[in-house]
Simulated assay, not measured.
Amino acid sequence: MPFIWVLVLLLLAVFLKSLKWRRISLFAALAILFIFSNPFLANEAWRAWEVEATPVNQLEQYDVAVILTGVTAFREDIPDRIHTHKGADRFLHPLQLYRMGKVEKFLVTGGSGRVLAGFVPEAEQVEKVLLMAGVPEEDILTEGNSRNTHENAVNTAGLLEQHPEWQDLLLVTSAFHMRRSVGCFEKAGVHTTPFSTDFYASERRLTPDEIIIPSISAFSNWHLLIHEITGFVVYKILGYC
């Protein structure tokens, strides 16, 4: 987390005995703040990493939209509704494709991701949303045991063995998460067509507020990007993708 880097460097700038290293720590902290809070640089990084959008009119018809979760949160104190994060496009966009006749069924994969038991699997929460949207229950298949992207792919591959008639698969997840997801599914022997949603990158704008003025959201979003790139590298090392 860049915030932690800045905090550590500022502490070093205060407590180090060497004046030289105190200055180096201070200037390093300021440099990180300046670079990582720049909206233009952050947007360029997102544009380079995210898998670009596929125009809806270019999509063919697919047997199943495989939806990766990670966008809902079970609240024990407010259990009478579904709580979603920014990435709700992961199920809203395939729902749009379903209504357009480009997707016939949904396969929603994802557990709770929590160490402790007692939480409703995310796949079940997304299923409830789809049912409330009028999707028939027979058009939704859920897999609620996966705790990470590797398990999403492996468990989905197991389910697909029971449905050999499903040949054309559309893989739906956030644009920043698509590289790792496609790699995991290919490794599991599941060929899919990627369909990115939930974009952090935007079109390039050369305006003063984008190039000069610092942004706290640009700074905080770097944590997610660094986390995902690190996860991709670790998955490569482990042979998951």
Score class of each variant (00 low, 15 high):
Met1Pro: 13
Ile4Asn: 06
Leu9Phe: 03
Leu10Asp: 02
Leu12His: 01
Ala13Ile: 02
Ala13Pro: 00
Ala13Ser: 10
Ser18Arg: 09
Leu19Cys: 02
Lys20Glu: 07
Trp21His: 14
Trp21Ala: 11
Arg22Thr: 01
Ser25Ala: 01
Leu30Ser: 01
Ala31Pro: 03
Leu33Gln: 07
Leu33Arg: 08
Phe34Ala: 14
Ile35Trp: 01
Ser37Leu: 08
Phe40Thr: 00
Phe40Ile: 06
Ala42Ser: 14
Ala42Ile: 01
Ala42Glu: 14
Ala45Glu: 03
Trp46Pro: 00
Ala48Asn: 11
Trp49Val: 07
Glu50Tyr: 09
Val51Ile: 13
Ala53Thr: 02
Pro55Ala: 04
Val56Met: 11
Gln58Thr: 14
Leu59Ile: 06
Tyr62His: 14
Val64Lys: 08
Val66Asn: 01
Leu68Ile: 13
Leu68Arg: 12
Thr69Gln: 06
Thr69His: 09
Gly70Arg: 09
Gly70Asp: 08
Thr72Met: 11
Arg75Leu: 15
Asp80Tyr: 08
Arg81Tyr: 10
Thr84Val: 15
Thr84Leu: 14
Arg90Trp: 02
Phe91Asn: 05
Leu92Phe: 12
Leu97Arg: 09
Tyr98Ser: 10
Arg99Leu: 14
Gly101Thr: 07
Lys105Asp: 09
Val108Phe: 07
Val108Ile: 15
Val108Lys: 04
Thr109Ala: 13
Thr109Gly: 04
Gly111Tyr: 12
Gly111Asp: 09
Arg114Pro: 00
Leu116Ile: 13
Ala117Leu: 11
Phe119Arg: 05
Val120Asn: 02
Val120Gln: 00
Glu122Pro: 10
Glu122Ser: 10
Gln125Cys: 04
Gln125Val: 13
Val126Arg: 04
Val129Pro: 00
Leu130His: 02
Leu131Thr: 05
Met132Tyr: 08
Met132Glu: 10
Ala133Glu: 10
Gly134Glu: 05
Val135Cys: 05
Pro136Asn: 01
Glu137Val: 10
Glu138Leu: 07
Asp139Thr: 07
Ile140Ala: 06
Ile140Thr: 07
Leu141Val: 15
Thr142Val: 13
Asn145Trp: 00
Asn145Leu: 11
Arg147Thr: 13
Arg147Gly: 12
Asn148Phe: 03
Thr149Met: 06
Glu151Asn: 06
Ala153Glu: 07
Val154Arg: 04
Leu160Ser: 05
Leu160Phe: 02
Pro164Cys: 12
Pro164Glu: 13
Glu165Ala: 14
Gln167Arg: 14
Asp168Arg: 15
Asp168Ser: 15
Val172Tyr: 10
Phe176Ser: 12
Phe176Val: 14
His177Asn: 08
His177Thr: 11
Arg180Ile: 01
Arg180Glu: 06
Cys184Asp: 00
Cys184Lys: 01
Ala188Arg: 10
Gly189Ala: 14
His191Tyr: 03
Thr192Val: 15
Thr192His: 08
Phe195Met: 00
Asp198Val: 00
Tyr200Phe: 15
Ala201Gln: 15
Arg205Gln: 15
Thr207Arg: 12
Asp209Ile: 13
Glu210Asp: 04
Ile212Pro: 09
Ser215Gly: 04
Ser217Glu: 14
Ala218His: 03
Ala218Pro: 03
Phe219Ser: 12
Ile226Gly: 05
Glu228Val: 05
Thr230Cys: 04
Val234His: 03
Tyr235Val: 03
Tyr235Leu: 04
Tyr235Asp: 04
Lys236Thr: 06
Leu238Thr: 00
